[in-house]
């Protein structure tokens, strides 16, 4: 019995549709809920406070990132001598102290202690602020579990109060809205809340527990026991081996390498040697065995 080409196409569509439905019914799909700033502040308050102080201090990941968020000519990845990251320019400017801490706290008007702490902080010189935030960041780092309640006494100025009030604001859920609604009524850009949450360790700890870390082949993995983006195996592979695994410019290097390899895939028909592999391996004799048998 032989099918026509049209019947065969319909059969293939039927099989693929059926397979999709069966897989969806049997396995479902992963949907680990998003982490809000409120959840972060409630579940890992010490990490939240440590991160908030780093944002105020200008020492967080985002504050030292370079383009496109921060203007820092020394920051950013390079491809050999080319500072590609800097070439992009600072197009999504973020002032971590103002945007993540001072700005949101300034909207709270019913707290006299907070008002005077803010006034004191904003009235201080840059050096004084840096001395307060630096000292408090160090003290938090040394405190057991980074617990603000166990920090040694020192001259931290208004910084502990500001960090504590930001924690309260975040716990109440207020900070989630504040970081999003900085520009207008409608918002679709989650850059600020995402950058803030990614500066902490809470998000990363959860990701690593799901094998999603960059050095865990994370790009091809998925939460739970689901298959992930297996097609990213080569891209994520490079991050596991030297020189990429130990390079500060790993992203730029891997990107460049994958661009070259992708181009090679696209232009394979024109690349001597590579284009001769099919003839040499002779797998085609298996594919066309009927043809070779009948046309001998």
């Amino acid at each position: 019995m032989s099918m026509t080409t049209r019947e065969r196409r319909s059969a293939v569509l039927g099989v693929i549709t059926l397979l999709t439905v069966v897989l969806a019914v049997v396995f479902g799909s992963p949907d680990k809920h998003a982490i809000s700033l409120a959840e972060w502040a409630r579940n890992a308050p010490n990490d939240f406070v440590t991160t908030a102080v780093a944002e105020l201090d200008g020492s967080s990941g985002t504050a030292t990132y370079g383009a496109p968020y921060v203007n820092d000519p020394t920051a950013g990845q390079k491809l050999g001598p080319l500072p590609l990251q800097r070439f992009g320019g600072v197009r999504e400017p973020v002032d971590t102290a103002q945007d993540f801490v001072i700005g949101p706290l300034s909207t709270v008007t019913s707290d006299p202690a907070l008002r005077s702490a803010l006034a004191r902080y904003q009235g201080a010189s840059d050096d004084q602020r840096k001395a307060w935030t630096g000292a408090y960041a160090d003290a938090l780092g040394k405190a057991p579990d980074n617990d603000p309640a166990k920090v040694a006494t020192g001259d931290y100025g208004p910084v502990p109060l500001l960090a504590g009030r930001l924690l309260d604001l975040a716990r109440s859920g207020g900070l989630d809205g504040q970081l999003l609604s900085s520009g207008g009524f409608y918002q679709t850009d989650y850059a600020k809340p995402l950058l803030f949450i990614a500066d902490g360790t809470y998000l990363e700890d959860q990701a690593r527990a799901e094998h999603l870390g960059g050095d865990q082949w994370g790009m091809m993995n998925e939460t739970g026991g689901y298959p992930g983006q297996a097609w990213l195996w080569l891209y994520t592979f490079w991050y596991q081996i030297p020189p990429f695994s130990s390079s500060d410019n790993a992203d730029a290097l891997v990107w460049a390498l994958m661009m070259v390899l992708s181009l090679a895939l696209v232009l394979l028909p024109f690349i001597p040697g590579l284009r001769s592999i099919p003839r040499a391996t002779r797998v085609y004799r298996l594919i066309w065995r009927e043809h070779y048998r009948t046309n001998r």
Binding site: H33, I35, Q77, Q85, D251
Partner: peptide
């Protein structure tokens, strides 16, 4: 969801690294 948060904050580094 969580995937989107993690993947976007990771992938930004790749895209930013080449500008």
């Amino acid at each position: 969801n969580f995937d989107s948060q993690w993947i976007s904050t990771q992938a930004k580094d790749g895209l930013n690294s080449v500008g």
